[in-house]
Simulated scan of single mutants.
Amino acid sequence: MRQLLAILFFLSYSALQAQSLEEINKQLESDIKQINYWYYEASANSKYDSLEAANIQFEKHLLKVLNNNPETLYHNFDTIIHTVSSPDKKLRAYSWDTNMGGTMRDFQTVFQYQTKNGVKAEKLTGKDNEPEDAIYWCNAIHSFKTKQQTIYIAVIYAKLSSIYSYTTVLFFTTENDSLTEIPSLIETDENGDTPGIEYNFLSTIDNPNAPDELIDFDPKKFILRFAKTDDDGNVTNSFDSYKFNGEYFKKVN
């Protein structure tokens, strides 16, 4: 009898934790509407505390539903929030504009990933395991396999001003059932910096010479490419290419 009651309690608890995708959509849509509402209120009446609270609530709800509902890893949320997935569909990024920035936009990104025991979702953490206040938007996720593990390449984007933007990559693994950011695997330049592109965003608009993707990856050739810019920060149709040699991406041109 006790065993039966325990099973019934577990099933009831699980039902309360899980939500239908329709319910999840409605909840997240409502949260986004609150962010947009308080954005206009903040602009008109300086209600910035309420805008921040709306973002905190959205992030809290998002992490909860992603952790408690494994099917969300494959669900289409594109009408609510920007999502990109890895080719193997085991890692996904959810990015949104908090509307708390000025011309330098404030983005937030949550990652969801497949583990051996289910699905997890989290924000990256910085020093002392404190949540990292990243201002980037995840634009794409590529992947490749080494002898030891699958490595994911997240293409991230930050808006620095009304004109200038920046894009680079982060490397991750999901080994040991945790999302781990690993040090850059790209050969640094003469200044010791990891490649990235600071560019004039306007140069990518209605420009037939601008590439569709400023950073791309060829999984068959293991080549990662970064678009070049001219002296004024305008994007060109030339690339710097880096080929993975088994240990890191080495510049080949």
Rank of each mutant, 00 (worst) to 15 (best):
K89I: 11
E187S: 08
K47E: 13
S85M: 12
A210W: 04
E190Y: 13
L224V: 15
R105V: 07
N237W: 08
F144W: 11
V84T: 10
S184M: 05
N209A: 13
A158N: 03
S50V: 04
N253G: 12
I223Q: 11
N25E: 12
E71V: 15
A42P: 00
K120Y: 04
G246M: 08
T194L: 02
F249N: 06
M1E: 11
N139S: 12
G192K: 09
L51T: 01
E59N: 07
Q57V: 05
Q114Y: 14
T229F: 00
R2K: 13
F172A: 06
T103E: 12
A53E: 08
E247H: 13
Q108Y: 06
E130I: 09
I205H: 04
L62H: 08
N55H: 02
S241H: 13
M100V: 00
D128C: 04
Y248G: 07
E29T: 10
T83W: 10
L124T: 06
G246Q: 08
P195E: 03
S161I: 01
Q19E: 13
F172Y: 15
E29V: 02
Y113I: 05
I153V: 07
L66H: 09
S43R: 11
Y39E: 07
Y48E: 06
S14W: 10
K116G: 12
V65L: 07
D218K: 11
Q57P: 01
H82K: 13
S46T: 01
I141F: 09
E71S: 15
N209L: 11
F171C: 05
G102Q: 05
T174Y: 08
D232F: 07
Y94D: 03
L214N: 00
E175W: 04
A93K: 06
L8I: 13
L202S: 06
I135W: 03
V235Y: 00
F107E: 02
T125Y: 13
L185F: 04
Y48L: 07
M104S: 10
S238Q: 15
F9N: 07
L185R: 03
F58P: 04
G196V: 02
D106K: 02
K159D: 02
S85A: 14
N67Q: 12
P219D: 09
F10A: 15
D128N: 15
T236W: 06
S46K: 15
E23W: 05
I24H: 14
I32H: 07
Y48P: 03
L224A: 04
A158H: 00
K26V: 07
F172R: 06
A158V: 00
T188Y: 05
I182F: 10
N99K: 14
A93F: 05
T188Q: 11
L66P: 05
A210V: 04
F226D: 00
S143T: 11
F107A: 00
S165L: 03
E122T: 15
K127H: 08
L73S: 11
I163M: 03
F226A: 03
F222Y: 09
K127P: 01
T194F: 01
P70S: 12
N191P: 00
I163E: 06
E181G: 02
T194Y: 01
N245W: 12
L170Y: 06
K26R: 14
N209R: 09
L224R: 10
H82F: 12
T236M: 06
H142R: 09
M100F: 02
T173F: 12
S46N: 14
F217P: 02
